[in-house]
Structures are given as C-alpha cells and as structure tokens.
C-alpha cells in the first residue's frame, strides 16, 4: 500500500472529494454571490446594511472557524444532530465564497461608468437593454482577473475541510503518516493542486485573452 501507484490511486480518491467540494461550491456560490451583490447594492437601506454587515462578518472571520461553526454549531445551539461532514463543509464554503464573489461582482458593476448607462439612455434604450448589451460584458471583463484569483484560492482552501474530517486529499495524505509512518504522500498532494491550478490558470488566461480586444 506504499508504492507510488497505490498512493496515487488513494490520493486521487481524496482529490475527487476535493474537486467535488470545489465544483459544487463554485456552482452554488457564483449565483448566490450575485444575489448577495444585488442586496448589497439595493436602494432599500435596511436591506443594504443587513447584507453588507453579513458580508463583513463572513469576510472578517476565518473560513476554518466558519467550518467548525456550521458543523458543530447546530448541535450546540439547537441540540440538533450534526450535519453530515461533506454537506456541512459545502454550506460553509458556499456562504464564505458567495460573500467574496458578491464583492467582486459589486466592484465589477460599480467600475462601469455612469456615462455608459447615460449613453444608452439618450439613445432610447431600456434599462434591460443597457444592462445586457452594454454593461454586462464590461462587468465580465472587469471581474475575470479577481475571479480567477479567488477561484484558484478556493482550490487550495478546500483543504480546510480537513478540520471537520472531510476525506479530501490532505486528509488522505495524512493517513499515511498514521498508517505507515510515511510523510512523502502528504507532500505529493501538492502535485495534484499544482496540476489543477495550472489548468485553471490556462483557462482564465484564455478567457482574459479573448476579452482583451477592448478596454473599458
């Protein structure tokens, strides 16, 4: 169980969990972040402040702590049973990353100048037409760099789920220390992260390049 291939095999199992956590977090946090973003830009002040306070709390506290709170919190506060580990981790990640994404969206939307909207208005366009035909692509272009940073951070942050014993790749690597006294499998996990982040870097580089034909 300690030769290279079987270690690779076992770590791949852990990495599948890592990727599931990564993929599902992304899938949920991208749209939820947009909703939070609209809340934080709402013209209705109480809602805006509520949302901004929430975002401030989430961004101002460690994700590791949030994982522990989501996992143990319901049991301690409501005497409820523990959530299964993976869903608990997913919930914490989605909350955390939605807040980060919402701020990126907000920055992207606010960086489109009033003049762009006004140019649309004086040409007789509707708000919806202006948003979809003029503003949206500029927002996308603006947010690709910060988004790619955040998404690559997410890949590595998934390892924090280890704190509530989600069997992601770091956990699997650590298994070898306990089981066989081997440390190299833990170091070897880095290769998986590197390969995946490299892939993402290429992907985002491609998107950035596709959008480089204009400057806003």
């Amino acid at each position: 169980m300690n030769d290279f291939l079987s270690v690779t095999d076992y770590l791949l199992e852990g990495f599948t969990v890592t990727l599931e956590l990564f993929g599902l977090t992304l899938l949920l946090a991208l749209p939820i972040g947009l909703i939070i973003c609209f809340g934080s830009m709402s013209k209705f002040k109480p809602l805006r402040w509520l949302v901004r306070t929430f975002v401030w709390i989430i961004r101002g506290t460690p994700l590791m702590l949030q994982l522990i709170i989501v996992y143990y919190g319901p049991g301690l506060i409501f005497n409820a049973g523990l959530l299964p580990r993976f869903p608990a981790a997913l919930i914490a990640f989605v909350i955390n990353y939605s807040c980060y994404f919402s701020e990126i969206y907000r920055g992207g939307i606010e960086s489109v100048s009033r003049g762009q909207y006004e140019a649309g208005y004086v040409l007789g366009m509707t708000k919806t037409q202006i948003f979809f035909k003029i503003v949206l692509l500029q927002v996308i272009k603006n947010i690709v760099p910060p988004m790619s940073n955040e998404i690559i951070t997410l890949v590595k942050d998934t390892s924090l789920a280890r704190i509530i014993a989600v069997y992601e790749i770091i956990w699997c690597g650590q298994d070898y220390i306990k089981m066989a006294g081997l440390i190299w499998p833990l170091f070897y996990t880095a290769a998986f992260y590197l390969a995946f982040c490299g892939l993402l870097t290429l992907l985002f580089g491609y998107i950035e390049k596709r959008l480089s034909y204009f400057r806003s």
């Binding site: 140019a119 007789g124 708000k127 806003s216």
Partner: peptide, 23 residues
C-alpha cells in the same frame, strides 16, 4: 419609462467624454 424613452428620441446628446461602447 416608455414615455421618457420616446421623448428622448427627439434629442441626441454628445458627451464631453464620448462614452462610446468599448466592446
């Protein structure tokens, strides 16, 4: 809103800083 848009069509406006659509 629809009336405002219709009224706007009587006028055009060229801005100091152009406001072209960059994309």
């Amino acid at each position: 809103d629809a009336e405002i848009r219709k009224n706007r069509l009587h006028f055009g406006l060229v801005f100091q800083n152009f406001n072209l659509f960059p994309q």
